[in-house]
Amino acid sequence: MIASVDEDRWKEIQKELKEEYTRLLQTLDSTLPRDETYADEALGCLAHSAYHLGAIKQMIKYITA
């Protein structure tokens, strides 16, 4: 578990998060079959990502309060 980071590491984490988000969008936009299973998996992936982004947002509120 990460307890603290300096400004440079925080920027690196943000960059890595953006790269992962871009990779996710590229995967969802790839030539995967567009059927019900794909839609279910894509929505599940987006919901899971939103959960983690919400958790990050809550942690930021906690540490900056």
Rank of each mutant, 00 (worst) to 15 (best):
T22Y: 09
A3P: 06
L53H: 09
A55Y: 09
S4H: 06
Y51W: 12
L24C: 06
Q14A: 00
D35A: 01
D8S: 13
L43W: 09
D40K: 12
K11N: 14
I56P: 13
A39Y: 15
L24G: 11
L43S: 13
A65H: 14
L25H: 08
Y21A: 09
Q58F: 10
L24D: 09
I63T: 13
L43P: 01
G44H: 02
H52F: 12
K18H: 00
K11D: 13
M1L: 04
K57I: 05
W10T: 14
E16S: 10
I63M: 15
D29V: 00
I56N: 13
E12M: 10
M59Y: 08
K11P: 02
E19C: 04
T27Q: 11
I56R: 14
I2S: 03
R34I: 02
D6L: 10
D6I: 08
Q14G: 01
S49R: 04
D35Y: 00
W10F: 15
I13A: 02
L25I: 02
Q58E: 09
K18M: 04
R9H: 13
D29W: 02
E41C: 11
E41L: 05
L17T: 06
W10S: 14
E12D: 02
G44P: 00
D35T: 05
A65V: 05
K57S: 08
T27L: 11
W10Q: 14
T64I: 10
K18W: 01
Q26M: 03
K18D: 07
E41N: 10
L43D: 06
A47M: 13
L32N: 14
I2H: 04
D35R: 04
D8N: 09
I13V: 07
L43H: 14
L46Y: 02
K61C: 08
E16D: 08
A50D: 05
S49H: 03
L25G: 06
A65W: 06
T64E: 12
D40V: 12
D29R: 01
I60V: 15
E36D: 04
E16Q: 13
A55M: 15
Y62I: 09
S49T: 04
L17I: 09
D29M: 03
Q14C: 05
T37S: 11
Q26L: 06
L46Q: 01
R9S: 06
I2C: 01
E20F: 02
I63R: 15
A3E: 09
T64S: 14
Y21H: 13
M1R: 01
Y62P: 00
D6W: 07
D8P: 07
S30F: 06
K61R: 14
G54W: 05
L17D: 06
T22G: 01
I2A: 08
R34Y: 01
G44Y: 07
E7R: 15
M59A: 11
I2R: 00
K18C: 01
P33D: 05
A39H: 05
A3F: 09
D29Y: 02
K57P: 05
S30Y: 07
Y51Q: 11
E36R: 08
A39Q: 03
G54M: 03
V5N: 01
L25K: 04
S4A: 03
L53V: 03
L17S: 03
G44K: 07
R23Q: 11
E41P: 06
